[in-house]
Amino acid sequence: MSVNESDVVTTAEGAAWEPKIVAFLCNWCSYAGADLAGVSRIKYPANVRIIRVPCSSRVNPQFVFRAFERGADGVLVAGCHPGDCHYVTGNYYTRRRLTLFKRLLEYVGFEPERFIVRWVSASEGQRFAETVKEMVDGLKHLGPQKRVSRV
């Protein structure tokens, strides 16, 4: 056989590459928003994998880094809009923590598109779907996250 096997694999993989997004959604707003997207049959790319947390303030920045280490191409954290937190103030802390963390990640060389924080309410199924779509577009443009990935 004259076909170089490794070339074939690369091409096949390259064509099939789809970004992998880990999303942390708060139970009360954003998870419900994602549920609503389902109930409303709003289609969005199948690249996102959702982890349910009670509140966006439960999301430890270490989870985000962990996801990148495990090969996630993007990480999304979504919670209630500030002021609407089920736990009254949780997302105000999220906002401070993740603003600093996102800036820090970008400072050490992560592209802004890799880590997204969004406020998605229980009635914003459409917004959730759009957020995923936007992220997938952005990540496809960037290509795989290989920098800290161990896979």
């Binding site: 500030p82 103030t89 105000y92 906002r95 401070r96 603003t99």
Partner: peptide, 15 residues
């Protein structure tokens, strides 16, 4: 610390 408090008007870079 700065992460143990908030202001409702904190800058929002996530909207």
């Amino acid at each position: 610390s700065v992460l143990c408090t908030y202001a409702t008007g904190d800058r929002d870079e996530f909207t």
